[in-house]
Design a protein around this nucleic acid. Structure first.
Lengths: 155, 155
DNA sequence: CCCAGATAGCTGTATGGTACAGGTATTTTT
DNA sequence: AAAAATACCTGTACCATACAGCTATCTGGG
């Protein structure tokens, strides 16, 4: 029984290590990939466009809550995106304080290009993996994200 | 056959999405966890201490290469760690230009405390997961990191 | 053996992403 | 209608990082 406890701790330690490593490697990969698609859209902008595409137009607060970001951060990101013509702001008809953020056609197109480039990148990185393993990876990552999100949202 | 290709692209897209999401969530979790263990050691410091612990004393260049960081970044991180008494610098006896970085007892202890806190955190996040799934997750993350690392190192 | 080039590390400077505090306009609650 | 809450924006600050340029040292071909 103490062996079970020990095994569980070892596994958690491994997960902790690998997530920390992935954060670093992901960052390094993102930087190193540059020059083509990375210059087109920085990470935050990409995530915002992805979310707008998936969940539809919404105001700054909703975006901030969903992305676990401070409202001021989203305000600035959105301003930059607007400057580049990738999103548009319109007053919220239902709330005079609010501003609804929507993607523009250019934003969607840019996002799709970056997404395609990133997908290609993963195809390269995982070239040697059988499809079944890739699916397992995708499933595990998805479940991990759900668990992380639930935990963040809980507090 | 075209179905296989399509399935593969869908999977890669999922992986791309989930990794991007994990980067954001991991960041949010790290920030949100704060106040206890996170203030003790920022992310870069933690990774450096982990690596020194695992791979032994080494100079700044070796650390930078291994962690995919610029030398100047490591220099600054190491300076901060030294200021806090968590690592020590000694001249490299075999190379007058070099400086060997080693963990101190305090550094190891701090690192272990942070590690324990983070492991506990993952235990919390993955509380509902059976051990077998956790092991699968750990395996998949490990293999993903290997693949990422290989790809980064290749260029 | 010596100098040219490489390397190790440090410092100056710049950028990006983020948070927090505070301000204003608007909505909701009482 | 006043008070409280909310939405957004702006000022400011911090951290992690990169790149360029500097000095000190090492190394290999003449």
């Amino acid at each position: 029984m103490s062996e079970d406890v020990h095994a569980a701790e070892v596994t958690l330690g491994r997960i902790e290590t690998e997530v920390a490593l992935l954060m670093r490697l992901g960052e390094a990969t993102r930087r190193g990939t540059g020059t083509m698609e990375h210059r087109l859209l920085d990470r935050a902008a990409y995530v915002i466009l992805r979310h707008l595409d998936a969940a539809g137009p919404q105001n700054v607060s909703a975006l901030a809550a969903r992305l676990n970001l401070d409202g001021s951060t989203v305000t600035r990101q959105v301003s930059a995106l607007q400057r580049d013509g990738l999103i548009s702001r319109t007053p919220d008809p239902a709330d005079g304080r609010g501003t609804v953020i929507s993607t523009t056609a250019a934003g969607l197109q840019r996002m799709a290009a970056v997404r395609a480039a990133r997908t290609r990148l993963y195809g390269d990185i995982l070239a040697a993996w059988p499809e079944a393993d890739r699916e397992t990876l995708a499933d595990m990552l998805h479940r991990l994200n759900e668990a992380l999100d639930a935990r963040n949202r809980r507090r």
